[in-house]
Amino acid sequence: MTETTTATEATAGAPRKKMEISSTDVAIEITKMNKWYGDFHVLKDIDLRVMRGERIVICGPSGSGKSTMIRCINRLEEHQQGSIVVDGIELTDDLKKIDEIRREVGMVFQHFNLFPHLTILENCTLAPIWVRKMPRKEAEDIAMHYLERVKIPEQAKKYPGQLSGGQQQRVAIARSLCMNPKIMLFDEPTSALDPEMIKEVLDVMVGLAEEGMTMLCVTHEMGFARQVANRVIFMDQGQIVEQNEPEPFFSNPQHERTKLFLSQILHH
């Protein structure tokens, strides 16, 4: 019951569901994007096109720039060259456009980043009320709907500090969903969790994927990647080194660094 999907065997044989992916509708288009931290070149000529409904898993050794890349998509990090177009809006210094994109893009963090001074319900209703200008009652109904979906409606009146890590992460997912986003970004959502809590979070993510949400996940949960991803991207030293469908990616990696990385994370 508490087995995790870390091991490849866990879901290796699971049948991959047929999922709708648009072939014409682009959700995210990243072209020749470069980023530096001071003199350090963290992202080098990133090109990535994500179609609507596509689910992409990004993996790679730490420091490879995978988190930085997805954080550029909602402007938590600023890129210095190239272009990022999200949902038809190009990211520039224009604050209005940044706000517009952030409203459509949900994000789930490694450390949940729930607001500790607000109850679970208030965490979920805050953005709909203040950003979407939704009436409180309606926002609460929507919040309860999503809390039920992540299976913790009974915790609505508690504070984040009273919940387990897995529960907090599920709240964080529900909080993002309350904004009804078109795209979801996951930045190592299970890396800070105890092993027995990883599955409950992954289950929620699998459910989201099955409904056709456009997802970008930075994760090392290779079972999850096999189960739901349309594409796996391997990054190293600020570049996309290899990308492929999960089956050939895992069974027949091409690049030396991919092979090394996979051998390190799969045999432990």
Binding site: N74, R75, L76, D99, R102, R103, V105, G106, M107, F109, H111, F112, N113, L114, F115, P116, H117, L126, A127, W130, V131, R175, S176, M179
Partner: peptide, 29 residues
């Protein structure tokens, strides 16, 4: 922690909303 700023920004809160609703209540407390 910077995660509080990021969480608020990722939800689309503006600067003053983020300060008033998320950061200052915690900082003042």
């Amino acid at each position: 922690p910077s995660g509080q700023y990021e969480g608020a920004q990722a939800l689309g809160l503006r600067f003053w909303q983020m300060m008033r609703l998320i950061i200052l209540p915690q900082a003042l407390k």
